Computed example of a mutant assay.
Amino acid sequence: MPRVSADVPAAAVPGAGAGTPPVSGAAWRRRLTVEVWIVLGLSLGRSGVYAVVTILDRVTRPEALGAQTATLNPSRADRPWLDLTYQLLSLGFALVPVALALYLLSAQGRSALRRIGLDRARPGRDLLVGAGLAALIGIPGLGLYVVGRLLGVTVEVRAAALDAAWWTVPVLLLSALQNALLEEVVAVGYLVERLRELRWGPVATVAASALLRGSYHLYQGWGPFVGNVVMGVVFAEYYRRRGRVGPLVVAHTLMDAVVFVGYALVPDDIRTSLGLS
């Protein structure tokens, strides 16, 4: 890899060294821009595009948006062992973009986990801050969902549709962790780091991360879109100031775990009476 000119740190270019032809800062930033689009195209950006198409489909149907449903964590086969296999494969492959983002952030052997604060340097503090963020975001988020349902701008979200089995709760917990790692590592840690290197300002960086988060939740309706944009602003700004994605992963895992497992454990008749199924 040729070395870069003085306006880009040489450490940012893998393999850069003395005696190699210089590369302009503009060329390096173009390379980073392409990289960002590739990572997002393989992960959350792709989900965002599909979610935009889905909401267009939903709002153009004769059926009102509030009368429609969205199912998370569906069953993938009618035989339990095969369903479990599909679930685990889906969870595993969904983490490949996380591995890619971490790999790209680990230029010249630098620890990507340490760089974005996903290491074990502050486990107790990360857990406490994560729990606080979960309460700060999760409780108002549930309220916003209820308001959205009452206003008819949010679809009915069925948080779990797995058949009852010994592995149902463990898989839902793994799903919560997978969602947290994918969204917080890619939409916050990776994206904020790359946009910082591309010399985006703080406001634009936080807005990009927040709007990305909102985009791939659009399939649930306008309420979840707004709620996730707000969550995105809080999480991206926290990361921008603190440089640790660990508490965000904890918070996201806790919120999803409560919703997924809670939904699965509530009896059908109670869910029906609450208008949740």
Rank of each mutant, 00 (worst) to 15 (best):
V4E: 03
L248N: 12
Y216F: 15
P21F: 02
Y50D: 14
R242A: 07
G45E: 03
T33G: 15
L198T: 00
W167Q: 14
G66W: 02
M255I: 13
H217L: 11
V129C: 08
Y216M: 13
L265G: 03
L56A: 03
A12W: 15
N73L: 08
R3E: 12
T54M: 14
G148S: 04
G189W: 09
G189Y: 11
D126N: 11
R244N: 05
R110F: 04
M1I: 05
W167M: 11
S5A: 12
L265R: 13
T168R: 15
A176R: 03
D119L: 08
I116C: 05
R110E: 13
L42A: 14
V188I: 13
G223R: 14
T54Q: 13
Y238I: 07
L128E: 07
L105A: 08
A101G: 08
R61M: 02
A180S: 15
F235S: 03
P224I: 03
A112S: 09
G243T: 05
Y145E: 08
W81M: 10
R125K: 09
F235C: 10
V155W: 02
L248C: 09
D7V: 03
L104K: 06
V169P: 00
V206S: 02
D163W: 00
A6T: 13
E184P: 03
G45N: 07
G227W: 09
R46P: 00
G25S: 02
G132Q: 06
